[in-house]
Design a protein around this nucleic acid. Structure first.
Lengths: 110, 110
DNA sequence: AATCTTTATCGTAATATTGCAATATATAAA
DNA sequence: TTTATATATTGCAATATTACGATAAAGATT
């Protein structure tokens, strides 16, 4: 055990869980917010903006890239990272769709 | 290591990561969606709705409860679970706030 | 009281995550 | 060509997560 069994859940449930997992670490949240703040690519100083060693930041960047939240393009010596606009809106909708399901209802809890 | 160092991040970054972590497993997503579907409390049959053993479901329920996404009230023999309306809206805003930051901008990536 | 039902907790095994030092890779600069 | 700079990968240790069997706890039923 220790491994999540994804087979028994819907694609949507797995997708939501995967995106959430990518956001489930403050360093990755910090990376995303940094990219949002700068509003464009960042070529080079993400490591300096985080309280982590370079290999650890590289690992978090790879996770975000694999999930499709950010993308990186090689530019000479450095790599320029930015939000991946192809997926952002889709990911936004996945969360919006979940949250508004309750907001639209009244709460019948005991 | 293996433990996330939360000290070096803002409260908001840690909060977002914590909520995301609670959503970062398809079983927990399934539990939430089940509660949303039923639209009220569920006293007793969450275990039957999931492809997991009872102790595992109980563990996931506890995580969701600790994060504040759901709440459980004891009702005789059983426990009635439902969405925690006190926090849902707040959690929704946390995600909305993140996602709309990019959607409002144009993408200046290389 | 004895038993059933429901949920929680404990203990444990398998796997994943986090973090970093060391090192590799690749382009830039000298 | 040698050296500097930027990022990725490897290897490893510490910790967390996931899952479940066994068992406990507590009210319900008989």
């Amino acid at each position: 055990m220790g491994a999540t069994n994804t087979e028994n859940y819907s694609d949507r449930q797995n997708e939501l869980a995967t995106i959430a997992k990518a956001l489930a670490h403050p360093a990755r949240v910090a990376i995303i917010e940094y990219l949002l703040m700068v509003d464009g690519c960042i070529c080079g100083d993400i490591v300096d903006a985080l309280p982590l060693a370079q290999p650890t930041v590289s690992q978090h960047l790879r996770e975000l890239k694999n999930t499709g939240i950010i993308k990186g393009t090689i530019s000479g010596n450095a790599v320029c990272y930015c939000i991946d606009d192809k997926n952002w809106g889709k990911f936004e909708k996945v969360f919006l769709n979940l949250f508004e399901k309750f907001t639209k209802k009244k709460n019948n809890c005991c």
